[in-house]
Design a protein around this nucleic acid. Structure first.
Length: 314
DNA sequence: AACCACACCAACCGCGGCGCA
DNA sequence: CTGCGCCGCGGTTGGTGTGGT
């Protein structure tokens, strides 16, 4: 039901997204947030244009995106808001948490357009005139802003932060922007994870002895911003080094991220802490039978996050 | 079974708005 | 003021599914 994958003359992939691409984008954004759509695909290891990534994230991968049938209430709301606002799909979308503008637009074209047309046909001619005037009248910017801001407030309340990780199901959590607080994240989670899984993961290494210890060996970390700092530089040659580093460095205790700069000043391992915790929760969900399709394993997260060949974080 | 028309929806495309130098 | 880059919005496209003939 989607366009078949193709590659344009610049080597940019188009068309249907593969599971691997989805996972790379999801992992990257959950880890680093959205800082520049244009450059993001390069750092996420994707041969896609920024627009395509943005659209895929916004309409499909972003947590909280509600899929499935529309309720009668949602349908009526779209219908009424369309009458009120016209084709301001993005504004309408803010009134329907979990629904995207693209989805609402599609729904309107395939379902509600007919309803509107049918209603117009049944209305007496004078009422049609009033109605059509109402639809075509440009709603003022102030009115749209008012509606949007009301919705923004609502969204802020309903949207969990990254501190909640992926919640029980990644579909139901939200970490689209870099807005992180971590008060409830267990400290030293990576430490316990390494203790628990480090040796096992080693044995699952890919070719060329590519085991966990090698994956975690980061000589010089440079952020996609291009800035590097001594705070971000560390060297762990194997799992025991990493564990020792954990024991020495209490800064691993999660703190609050106030903004993008604050986020980047944190050690990348701390960010990984969230990822691992999230995937552990996800694993628990899978064990409980709440399988979330397409989720990468923790090992895959590491493989994608650390690309040793070009010595930078992907 | 084969064909056709329509429905559906993910993804693409072009344009306008905005911020910044 | 102007030009540039980026982002988001709305319109459109194209492939697959489905139901009817």
């Amino acid at each position: 039901m989607v366009r078949s994958p193709s590659i344009d003359k610049n080597g940019i992939r188009k068309g249907e997204w593969s599971k691997e691409e989805d996972d790379k984008l999801r992992v990257y954004i959950n880890r680093y947030g959205i800082w520049n759509w244009r450059q993001l695909p390069q750092f996420a290891g994707l041969s896609r244009c920024g627009k395509s990534c943005r659209l895929r994230w916004k309409n499909y991968l972003q947590p909280n995106v509600k899929r499935g049938n529309y309720t009668k209430e949602e349908e009526d709301l779209i219908f009424n808001l369309h009458n009120q606002l016209g084709k301001k799909w993005s504004v309408i979308a803010t009134k329907l948490p979990g629904r995207t503008d693209n989805e609402i637009k599609n729904y309107w074209h395939t379902h509600l357009k007919k309803r509107t047309e049918a209603q117009n046909l049944t209305l007496p001619s004078n009422q049609k005139k009033i109605k059509s005037n109402c639809q075509t009248t440009q709603i003022s910017k102030e009115e749209i802003n008012q509606i949007s801001s009301q919705s923004d407030k609502h969204q802020q309340i309903i949207s969990p932060t990254l501190s909640e990780g992926f919640a029980d199901s990644p579909n139901e959590s939200c970490c689209s922007e870099v807005s992180h607080s971590s008060s409830d994240a267990p400290p030293n989670d990576l430490y316990s994870w390494v203790q628990k899984n480090g040796e096992n993961t080693k044995s699952h290494g890919t070719s060329d002895g590519d085991d966990l210890s090698r994956q975690l060996k980061i000589e010089d970390y440079e952020s996609p911003h291009g800035s590097s700092s001594s705070e971000m530089s560390f060297n762990c040659s194997d799992v025991s080094d990493l564990m020792a580093w954990f024991e020495e460095d209490n800064s691993m205790t999660p703190t609050s991220f106030e903004g993008l700069d604050d986020f980047w000043s944190q050690s990348s391992f701390e960010t990984d802490n969230y990822m691992i915790n999230a995937y552990k929760q996800e694993q628990a969900s899978m064990d409980a039978g709440l399988v979330y399709p397409g989720s990468p394993t923790t090992e895959e997260v590491f493989l994608w996050s650390y690309d040793l060949s070009d010595e930078c974080i992907r």
